[in-house]
Design a protein around this nucleic acid. Sequence first.
DNA 1: AACATTTTTGCATTCGTATGCAATACGGTT
DNA 2: AACCGTATTGCATACGAATGCAAAAATGTT
Lengths: 355, 355
Amino acid sequence: MDSGIKRPGVTSSEVARRAGVSQSAVSRTFTPGASIAPKTRAKVLAAAKELGYRPNAIARSLITNKSRIIAVVMAYLENLFYPDVLEELGRQLAAQNYRLLLFTGSMARDSDPVFDQIMQYRVDGIILASTSLSSELSEECAAAGIPVVLFNRTTERDAVSSVTTRNREGGRRIGEFLLAGGHRRFGYIAGLETSSTNRDRYAGFAEALAEGGHTDIAIGTGNYSRADAEAAAREMLALPDRPDALFVANDHMAVAVMDVARYEFGLSIPQDLSIVGYDDVGPARWTSYGITTMSQPLKRMVDATVDILMEQISSGEIEAEHRILSGELVVRTSARVPESGVVEIDGRRVFKPKG
Amino acid sequence: MDSGIKRPGVTSSEVARRAGVSQSAVSRTFTPGASIAPKTRAKVLAAAKELGYRPNAIARSLITNKSRIIAVVMAYLENLFYPDVLEELGRQLAAQNYRLLLFTGSMARDSDPVFDQIMQYRVDGIILASTSLSSELSEECAAAGIPVVLFNRTTERDAVSSVTTRNREGGRRIGEFLLAGGHRRFGYIAGLETSSTNRDRYAGFAEALAEGGHTDIAIGTGNYSRADAEAAAREMLALPDRPDALFVANDHMAVAVMDVARYEFGLSIPQDLSIVGYDDVGPARWTSYGITTMSQPLKRMVDATVDILMEQISSGEIEAEHRILSGELVVRTSARVPESGVVEIDGRRVFKPKG
DNA sequence: AACATTTTTGCATTCGTATGCAATACGGTT
DNA sequence: AACCGTATTGCATACGAATGCAAAAATGTT
C-alpha cells in the first residue's frame, strides 16, 4: 500500500528521504527558476509521483507571504451580469495562477465583517463587485499593501482603484435615443440610490432630456432587485399620463418591468411603451425581451480589473488607478427606433448619432 | 503613526510584547475555549486592537491542519440555477465559518488540473456542482480524508457522497402530466448525454410514456447549453409531424426552446405546443415564460450538502452518503393543463395525480 | 497558616516549505 | 594533475500560530 495510493500528509521531507536528497532539493524542484540539476530534479519528481506528493500551498504561503488568492466580494448573484463576471474572473485568475475566494450571500452586503475574513487569509488582492467598502477599510487595505479594485462602481474619494464604464455618457446616449424616437413622457427606474453607477446613469439621462426640453421625469426605485422593480413599474404605469419611454437602470430590472407592462397593463412594446436597459446581459438578448440596452464590455472590464491587480501585486505600489471603458447602445426591439442614427456594426445594430 | 494605523504583518508575538504576556496567551485569546484569564484576555484584546492585529489564518491552518476552506467547482454559471446555488452555499458556509474557494470558467470542465490546485490548498471539503471527478480522483480524496459531495449528480460507483433529487420520478411525473394533458406526439431535449441527471430524467419520462402506449419520442440534444438547445429545437420543430409536447431537460434550455418555438415557428404555447422544464429557476417564473416545471428544492439541497460536509469533517469518517430529495411539478402556463390532478398548495399550482 | 486543587501561564516545539549561506561537486583550462 | 569558475547541494533558520507539558499563580479547604 505505498505505490499508487496516496496518503494525506505527504511532505517534502518524506519525498526527500525517498529520493535520497535534501528537503531543499525537493523544494527547489517545485520552485520554478530555482537552482536544481536536471538529474536531481528527475529523481525528486519520480519520488514525488510515487508518494503522491503535492506542495502544501498553505506552508508555502506562510513563508513567501503570498497566498495567490484573490478575494471577490459579490453580495448577490441574482442579476446574471455578475455570474458572467464571476465566470470570466475565474477564467482569468486561473490563467494567472491565482485562486478565487468568493464572498457572496446577503452577509456580504455589509462588507465590514467579511473584511475581517479577507484579512485573515492574507489575500493578495480584493475585488469588490456588488458591495462597497467603507473608506476606513480601504485605507486599511492600502496600509496593509493589499490592492483593491472596485468593479462597476466608484467612490468619491478615489483612493481605491476602480473599473467602470462611462455611465454618464451611457445615460445621456439613452436620453438622446429616446428623444430621437419621438417620445414625449419619460420615466426612470433607478437602481440602488446610493450607488455611483445609478447616480451617473441618471445624471446623463436627465441632462440629455433637459437639452431636449424635458425636465419632468417620472422616477421609481427598483434597487437593482426584481421585486422592487416590478413594484416601481406598477406604480409608474398606473400614473394618469404614464410615460411612453422608460429607462431602467439595468437589464435585470428591465426584464421585470417588461413583464409587468405587457402582462399586467396589456401594453405593447414598443408601440405603447419603449424600454431601454443597461448591461446587455443574457436575457436582454432573448427574443422574448430583445432589450435595447447600453452594453458593458464585460470581458474588457475583467481584463482591466485583473490587469490592475496583477500590476499592483507585482510592483508592490498601490496607486489608485481608474479605468473607464465605453459601451454602445445596442438596438433591439424593446424601444421605438429613431429614423436616423442607427447603424449596423458586425451584425449588431447600434445607435450612433451624428458622425 | 502607531495607534490606529495598522501595519501589514502584525504578529501574535508583537501583540504579546505590547500586552506584556507570552505569545501563547495571545493565541489562547483568539482560540475559543482555550484556557485564559479574563483579565489577561482583556489586556491582549486591547493590545491587538491598538496594533490592528488579526490572526493569520494561513499560519493557523498550517498547524491545525484545517484550512476552513471548501472548494466549490462549478464549470459554468450560464444557467441561473447555479448562481442561486452558489449564493446559498456562500450564505451557509459563511454561517458555519467556512470560506468558499470557487473554481469556475471553462477550465473546470476537465476537473483534473483543477484538482491539483484543490489539493495544494488542503481544503477541508469539496463540492462538485457542474463537473464530475474521475473515480480515480475521488478515491484519492477519500484516501486523503477530504470529503467530497456531488451536487445534483451522481456516479455509478457510489464511493462519493451526493445530493440529488428524484430525477427518474420527476421525469415520470412529467410524462404522466403530458399524457394527462392529452398530448399525442412527444419530444425530449436532452442535457449532457453523459450526465446521470439527464439519463434519469429521460428514463422516467420514457417509462411513463411507454405505460401510456407511446414508445416513439423525438430526441434532440441541448447539452444544457442555450445555443445547443436552440439548434435542437429548430431541428425538432421542423419535423413533418412535430411533437405537441416537449420535455426539456432543464429550464435554462426550456426558455431558449420557447423563444424558438414562438418567434421562429410562430407557435402558440401551450395551444400548439406544450413545454415542460426542470429546476424551477428564476426565468421559469417570469410571466413571459411561465414554465411548468419540476422544482428542485435548492435550499434543502444546499442544506443537505453542507450537512454532509460538516458531519464528515467533524467525524473524520468519510462514508459515502446519498441524500435524495423530492421536488414537485409546478404548473404554470407553458403546458396544457390536464382536467384533473392539479391542486393548489400554498398558492402554487402543483400536479399531484391520484391520491 | 499550611496544604490541596484548580486555573492560568510561559516554554519549547511543531506544522511544511523557502531561502541565504557555506560547502561541495562538476566542468573546463592550462 | 592542479586550478578556477560555475552549478548544485545541504544545513540551518524563518514564517506565525497552536499546544503538551510543567511551572507558577490563584483559589479553596481544613
